[in-house]
Design a protein around this nucleic acid. Structure first.
Lengths: 238, 238
DNA sequence: TCAAAAGTGTTGACTTTACACCCATGA
DNA sequence: TCATGGGTGTAAAGTCAACACTTTTGA
């Protein structure tokens, strides 16, 4: 290509990027915030405030601000909605069908997060924010059911290879609780001995030499995740 | 929340979505188009036409049009640049650091694609478009090196579980060629017998009972991917 | 003392890895 | 006939899945 052609192309590109119609797409982030309670995987939903979706729930999200990195937007949403930071949060996928949003063109980038529902810092900011068992969710506003299903799928794929589910539990937990979480996510009951063998091979856990207290039956031993595997302060580890 | 509050929130949201500064973010797609030649994984790059990145290469991409689905944009780019459709193409990740683009706020969504460099339909549309061996790429314009590395990582993760690499080869190929492609991607030499056993366990291939022709040595048997595993005409299969 | 959950090992099936020789072809 | 790569099987190690009994505790 000759230099003159390149200059023409550059002008063309710059013209395109500054033409107003190419800024007619808004960008949002939507957060699939998972928790664990009542032996079931839960997700945080908010009552939709749009008349098109009255009576439907939707995922918490917000538009990305022009002055924030894409990846910080979901942390902001999470902090605003739950008061939590230092949480596991990972990008999943962008969703951008033309008609996914009734009030205009909005491309959204989905993130999923895992938090401990009983964490002392957790404070839902909104009366319309509630935990829902994922099993009971049939319909959501926008394309949020598709987003949720995509995130559940990714979660299932990752939990065997990465130390993620610990983010759903308090710092100290028993192997029984841990197994319950795994079973809730993959929806399969596991053999207790094989599960313990699998977990112990990962070398993720520290035996605290403590026992559960106030259990109705024989208490189990307590463990915690080794510090080097915690999901925040950096990236997730293998 | 009371109804009046909800109405207020709705107005607030609608106001935000239509305030011009929230459309100040442009959306692009960037395509990491992989090919295979000279026993190495190749990627299609274009000479950057921006003075900030003179002499650097970049990934082919374009702004998403307001009237196209997000996922069709990379197909359009691919068709424009290579003349190819019916190709494997999958979304990888969105990249959205504030300063990733020198001329303004652009969030990009990366896709990766696998094509047969020797396909008869392949026709590079631009004299500045060329194949580069991924081994030799140290620096790219924008954050494209990061995008490329992310896509290579995803490719490596997927090739053992999904019938993807066949998209890099002509319809008929020998097991030797197939093994070469795998080795080029994962950068490890494999044992021939174990490789063949692994591939035959997947049941992806159809034995054509044909032999290579015009080989300098003993010709190998030819295979092709079973139709039900081809990546286009629907989603990738397990 | 009873009920309930905690804790713990072994076996067989299968998968993965390492490894070497003969065969068919083109030159 | 020779050089080159094509084609093939087995044994050992490791991983995965199935399976039952004893122990500890609270009630």
């Amino acid at each position: 290509m000759k230099t003159a052609d390149k200059e023409a192309l550059k002008r063309k590109t710059n013209a395109k990027i500054s033409r107003p119609e190419f800024f007619n797409i808004a960008i949002s982030v939507d957060c699939v915030i998972f928790g664990y309670a009542k032996k079931e995987l839960q997700v945080l939903l908010i009552k939709s405030n749009r008349k098109e979706f009255s009576e439907l729930y939707s995922l918490p999200g917000d538009l990305v601000r022009p002055d924030e990195d894409l990846d910080t937007a979901p942390y902001r949403v999470l902090k605003e909605k739950t008061g939590m930071d230092d949480v596991f949060l990972e990008q999943v996928q962008a969703f951008g069908a033309i008609d996914r949003h009734p009030s205009g063109r909005v491309i959204t980038i989905a993130y999923y997060s895992l938090i401990d529902i009983l964490h002392h810092k957790l404070q839902l900011s909104d009366n319309d924010l509630h935990w829902h068992s994922v099993k009971n969710i049939n319909q959501l506003a926008f394309d949020h059911k598709l987003i949720l299903d995509t995130c559940i799928h990714k979660l299932k794929e990752q939990i065997m290879d990465h130390p993620l589910v610990f983010n759903l539990l308090p710092e100290k937990f028993s192997l029984r609780e841990l197994q319950d979480v795994y079973e809730a996510i993959i929806n399969i009951t596991l053999d207790r001995r094989n599960f313990r063998k699998m977990i112990s091979l990962k070398k993720w856990l520290l035996d605290l030499n403590e026992l559960e207290i106030n259990t109705p039956r024989r208490p189990g031993k307590l463990y915690k995740l080794k510090k080097e595997y915690s999901s925040f302060n950096g990236q997730k580890k293998k």
